[in-house]
């Protein structure tokens, strides 16, 4: 049996399930039309909510309070750790960050050296005299 005569490889249960889900929600099927209408309705509702002044005011207030609480908490924790002479979270993060940077620098330095070597090599090749067919003359000849 040639390759072209072979049946397509059996699809797994998951693939068939996803395909069915895609088919059921396709805008051209009956279930898909219902799904599309629901999707459009939900989008309109969420757009109205997210642009309403009440929502913006409320979410802004909640966000501000949460952030201010975080600022106060950070300050308290850092002060306490400093008093105990222990490394703070930000110090550990800083150390991790510095290690990452050293790694980046080493990688970049390697690449920069490659560029430099490449440039030097090109300069050397350009400086070399072009080979001639005549044999070199002996000194003093």
């Amino acid at each position: 049996m040639s390759d072209s005569d072979r049946p397509p490889p059996p699809r797994g249960l998951l693939a068939r399930g996803l395909k069915l889900l895609g088919h059921l929600t396709h805008p051209e099927t009956r279930t898909g039309k219902v799904f599309t209408r629901a999707e459009q309705g939900l989008t309109r509702f969420l757009t109205r909510v997210s642009e309403s002044p009440t929502y913006l005011r409320a979410s802004g207030t909640v966000l501000r309070q949460g952030l201010n609480a975080r600022i106060r908490r950070n300050s308290l924790v850092e002060n306490a750790l400093h008093t105990l002479r222990l490394p703070t979270t930000s110090e550990v993060e800083n150390l991790r960050d510095q290690l990452r940077r050293v790694n980046d620098q080493v990688e970049a330095l390697g690449s920069q050296l490659e560029v430099v070597v490449d440039l030097l090599h090109r300069k050397e090749s350009a400086a070399e005299p072009a080979p001639t067919d005549s044999p070199p003359t002996k000194p003093g000849a």
């Binding site: 913006l56 005011r57 802004g60 207030t61 966000l63 501000r64 952030l67 201010n68 975080r70």
Partner: peptide, 21 residues
Amino acid sequence: GVYTLWTAANHFDVDSLVDAY
């Protein structure tokens, strides 16, 4: 559009966000 609306000064406190994180 919505980005301008959401970041308006009267309900988006950018100072708190940057100071906190």
